[in-house]
Design a protein around this nucleic acid. Structure first.
Lengths: 247, 247
DNA sequence: TTAATAGTGTCTTTCAGACACTATGGA
DNA sequence: TCCATAGTGTCTGAAAGACACTATTAA
């Protein structure tokens, strides 16, 4: 009973699927594409595709992300100007998840700032940003289902994002290169679906070493008193963490 | 450019590899098996094997765990008598990670109580529990390397375990069905490689709702004053968490 | 002036960490 | 008796949450 018999392995197809999240108009949104062929023709699905024979899993995810959004991914450290955070999420391999053949999908999670194009992707298929609240949660049972097991993957990705912004500086991946404390707070509020105290949030976020560095300027783009502009500091883990309010 | 063309997908082999951790004699240990055939013949490796055409990824991991250790896995909730915790860890698919062919491995993490058999597995291959400290970290450069990318997978699994016992009740998966507070403390000390204050640990762990439930009895198996016996409570997330000492 | 957002200060409670002290068994 | 471990109490400092108050812009 050899463990790796190259002449007699069961054949699998391996794909990557992407949970691409952004914050638009105070709402957490996910990128969906419309399927142009069966199965699930006409359904909305997560972007994704086959892993090529000579590329790694992260490479494949990065390539798909660029094809769909034009974003360059930074899978290790924080993002820069035209970049997004990208990390592996989980792998889904239920034998019947694709009705045609055995497909194992390595899902990845990408966090991006609000993109200028409302309908991204140069592809011929349709694409849209859909509010996560309309896709998941205790919504009406008649809402449009996603293709394959993509609702499950999306739910896992959203939960990963919600929990990771507690202990890491990842929330800045949703912001532009320069942002205010208020804009960062609205990111947390949108991702968690809560309302946070602006004063406590300000004290906490500016008091966490390495989270934010002042970039010098100010802006009044949110109205009111001019707010300092910040960039993401080098820190990846937050100490103390930003704790999500309970229940 | 169809995304799922069943007639022209690149063929992959899909395996599961297991990071099986336990605590033996105050040390965090991982289960290794010796490879009986090339490549890496004679090297120590993580247990694992091919995913069968009709089984899911978690099923495959559970089957491999049972074959290697006799443990039944409980992948969702806490473990029971002869069970271990099992969860998906991450997927490794570098194109050259196996010299013979394209293999994508879905690694899983299993946490088990100290097993009665020092050399587990009814298989003909050798197997052993190896202290994690001897396999990872800034040890001597002449230490025996693991097969494939298994050192990387092991490091990721150990880091996952170290971080998960902070926020979840998973540390009880390393204990027998009934255990004392001191035994649980020694689990934390072994996994984190630190020394904890017994009094503060006791106060914290007994004050966290749902973590421990008294089972009524006492034991003196650790010497000293008789200690209360506990079972794992139903809680999966700990609030407040058990924070790992810094640096 | 009013409305809106930015930012500071202050109080209370909770909890982590340090550590004195008591309790209860075995050798 | 001594020694080991179990378990409680008490103090201090850090930080979260509630919220009064000031600051600075645009309409």
């Amino acid at each position: 009973m050899s463990r790796y018999d190259p002449s007699a392995f069961p054949p699998f197809a391996v794909t990557v699927d992407l949970v691409v999240l952004t914050v638009r108009e105070h709402e957490l949104c996910a990128l969906l594409v419309r399927r142009g062929e069966p199965p699930f023709q006409g359904y909305w699905a997560l972007p994704g595709g086959f892993v090529r024979p000579d590329e790694g899993l992260g490479e494949a995810a990065s390539r798909e992300l660029a094809e769909e959004t034009g974003l360059r991914a930074h899978s290790t450290a924080g993002q820069t100007a035209a970049g997004a955070h990208l990390e592996q999420l989980a792998t889904y391999g239920h034998p019947q998840r694709d009705p045609r053949m055995r497909v194992v999908s390595v899902a990845h999670l990408a966090l991006a700032p609000d993109l200028p194009t409302p309908k991204p992707g140069g592809d011929a298929r349709g694409a849209r940003w859909a509010p996560v609240s309309e896709l998941l949660g205790p919504g009406p049972a008649d809402r449009e289902p996603l293709a394959f097991d993509h609702a499950l993957i999306l739910a896992d990705g959203v939960e990963r994002a919600r929990s990771k912004i507690e202990y890491s500086a990842l929330a800045t991946a949703f912001c532009a290169e320069e942002f205010t404390v208020g804009e960062l707070r609205r990111v947390y509020e949108a991702v968690w679906g809560v309302v946070l105290d602006p004063r406590n949030f300000h004290r906490k976020v500016t008091g966490t070493p390495g989270f934010l560095v002042p970039s010098g300027g100010t802006t009044t783009r949110q109205g009111g008193r001019p707010a300092q502009l910040f960039r993401a500091g080098g820190a990846t883990v937050l100490n103390p963490p930003m704790l999500r309010p309970e229940s």
